[in-house]
Design a protein around this nucleic acid. Structure first.
Length: 570
RNA sequence: GCGCCCAUAGCUCAGUGGAUAGAGCGCCGGACUACGAAUCCGUAGGUCGGGUGUUCGAAUCACCCUGGGCGCACCA
């Protein structure tokens, strides 16, 4: 009994209200006051911009007006009349404008939010909309032919945070990195390293322009020469190149792992492309599709009929020279993903790969899977700036700023926060100087500062003997300034933000919310005449400590979702 | 040429088909003898690129145009 009651109390405000409206609709139909047309499954509730329009409002009466064959305001009136608010959630309900229903929540109910935050602590904001469904999310998946650059960093931040958000929303999430450890580019890597080895050992040979150019190739060559000795050039060339390739790919991949680790990103599984060849998975899926005439032969190559599934042209799977393309292993890879029975598959790619989508989607359909289960998120590119002017980068010449360099220079927190601050759909200007600034131009510290400030207040309070952080019923008389209620209302929105981020798969909503909460706190904090938290008034101090420490909980859990630290001092 | 993404304040960007479109930065002017000034308060700033349509209602949806980014390989 008490358990159920507690559970209901813990429901986010919006959910409680949604249920109330839904029951009203049902009882309106039961009473014959509403036509038994379909009742919306979820009630669209929004927080109006203008406070006079209530804490929440719904347009349900307007959307139902046509099928109800009544004026929207009339429908709204009927709904209101059937609301059974036995829990005294509402202080006022009104019909407004063209047919909105505006809800005003009883002030007492807001205090429950405060209690819930303390009860649930870091679990506050989590929900079960995911119903335990299994989601696989694959991201970064950069080729082990060079270090990660800033663009990969953005994908890493988006993927890792999205995974955390989905987990908080009740999904079972598996994070995966697909390692392209096979094929031509690995071979080229091997040849590049091999050539550098020979150069180091004294061969005066030219280094072709289509080989990997970066200094790291030379570093790897030096390392390999030290380890293997000087006999490398005397071996059979293909064998030597193979040794170089394996060595370089392993070294680079382990560097990538370390860089990601330093960036706070971890994976549940590293999936090897080569394994798909070793297990014959690629061969067998090609065979299968060939027998169904989805793959056909033309001019010595094998082609996939992607055009039949909406692509603009058919695509090559096996080239005339017998080499498979990336597409071939990607078909097998996605087949493998579907065979692992995830309810949902998410691929996060750099936006420059968007031309690849119709191809992959075609292959999923051709294999008989539902392509809607696989969602491909394209993360737009990053423009790296320093003090407002672009940083020259050329991947081909091997001159680019790596993720590691950025993290070393600006710090992991700033990098992650700024990567997540934009919708992934919009290109990101990342300014290294701005990222380092400890000022109001940099939103990272703005949010973290809230955590540090509140931590400091709590420390001060403890020094003065305020020990126990728990709810007292007289807090309702002590926390009643409009700006305090406003803060609580803002905190009540956090679970909605998490749920929305999960549903729309949009991590940027978290930092935007945190900025808003931070701004509200800073403003509150600053008026020391009115809002001094720790004072000689023991009751008031306890109440305000309860209030601000709830803010700290949300700041901390929000930052944790983003992989950003919540420091107690700065 | 074709395809995908984008266009909102001077700049960088939010915005769930709803009511009067928001924030940060920058500009200008203010605020520390009390819990951290990495902060706060105030002023100004808009044809939501343009057009047509759908809708009771459009920054949001559809179509066209303009402008920008990216991609159009038997590359990855």
């Amino acid at each position: 009994m008490t358990w159920t009651l507690k559970l209901v109390n813990r429901q986010p405000m919006k959910e409680k209200l949604g249920l109330l409206v839904q029951h009203a609709l049902k009882s309106g139909v039961a009473a014959g006051h509403l036509r038994p047309t379909e009742i919306p499954l979820s009630i669209a509730l929004e927080t109006p911009r203008i406070a006079a329009h209530g804490d929440y409002s719904t347009n349900v009466a307007m959307t139902m007006a046509a099928t109800q064959k009544r004026a929207p305001r009339e429908v709204a009136r009927i709904i209101i009349d059937h609301i059974d608010d036995s829990g005294h959630l509402l202080s006022k309900t009104e019909v407004a404008g063209p047919g909105f229903i505006n809800f005003f929540i009883t002030q007492e109910k807001w205090y429950e939010v405060l209690k819930t935050i303390h009860d649930e602590y870091e679990a506050y904001g989590a929900c079960q909309i995911g119903l335990g469904k299994r989601v696989q999310i694959e991201f970064v998946s950069a080729n082990p032919t060079g270090p990660l650059h800033v663009g990969h960093g953005r994908c890493a931040a988006v993927g890792d945070t999205l995974a955390a958000i989905l987990e908080a929303a009740g999904y079972q999430v598996e994070k995966e990195y697909y390692v392209n450890d096979s094929g031509r580019q690995i071979h080229t890597l091997g040849r590049s390293v091999f050539l550098r080895c020979r150069q180091i050992l004294g061969d005066a040979i030219e280094f072709p322009a289509d080989f990997y150019q970066g200094d790291y190739i030379e570093d790897l060559a030096r390392l390999l020469v030290d380890r293997e000795g000087a006999h490398l050039p005397d071996m059979d060339e293909e064998e030597a190149v193979g040794i170089c390739a394996r060595f370089a790919a392993e070294e680079i991949l382990s560097g990538i792992r370390k860089d990601l680790e330093a960036f706070g990103v971890s994976f549940d599984r590293w999936f090897s492309e080569q394994a798909l060849y070793d297990s014959e998975a690629v061969r067998s899926v090609i065979q299968d599709l060939k027998s169904r005439d989805i793959i056909y032969e033309h001019e010595g190559a094998l082609w996939f009929r992607t055009q039949d599934f909406g692509d603009e042209k058919d695509r090559v799977v096996v080239r005339a020279n017998g080499q498979t393309t990336y597409f071939a292993s990607d078909i097998a890879y996605h087949k493998d993903k579907f065979e692992r029975k995830f309810d949902r598959i998410i691929d996060i790619w750099g936006a420059d790969h968007h031309g690849y989508i119709p191809r992959v989607s075609a292959s999923i359909q051709a294999m008989g899977y539902d392509e809607k289960q696989c969602r491909i998120i394209l993360v737009q590119l990053v423009n790296l700036l320093r003090g407002g002017s672009p940083v020259a980068m050329s991947t081909r010449a091997g001159e680019f700023v790596t993720l590691r360099q950025v993290v070393d220079e600006v710090g992991r927190d700033a990098a992650r926060f700024l990567f997540l601050l934009r919708h992934y759909d919009s290109p990101l200007d990342f300014d290294l100087e701005l990222a380092k600034k400890e000022s109001n131009e940099n939103p990272v510290y703005y949010v973290q500062y809230v955590h540090a400030r509140i931590s400091n207040i709590i420390k001060k309070a403890e020094e003065r003997g305020y020990k126990h952080m728990c709810w007292h019923d007289d807090f309702t008389d002590l926390i009643k300034l409009p700006e305090e209620i406003q803060l609580i209302k803002l905190m009540a929105r956090y679970p909605e933000v998490v749920a929305q981020s999960a549903l729309l798969m949009e991590p940027h909503r978290i930092p935007f919310y945190l900025k808003e909460l931070a701004a509200a706190f800073h403003a509150y904090y600053h008026d020391r005449n009115k809002h001094m938290v720790v004072s000689d008034d023991a009751g008031l101090s306890a109440a305000r400590l309860f209030l601000v420490s709830a803010i700290r909980i949300i700041i901390s859990t929000g930052l944790t979702l983003m992989g950003v630290s919540a420091p107690e001092t700065m």
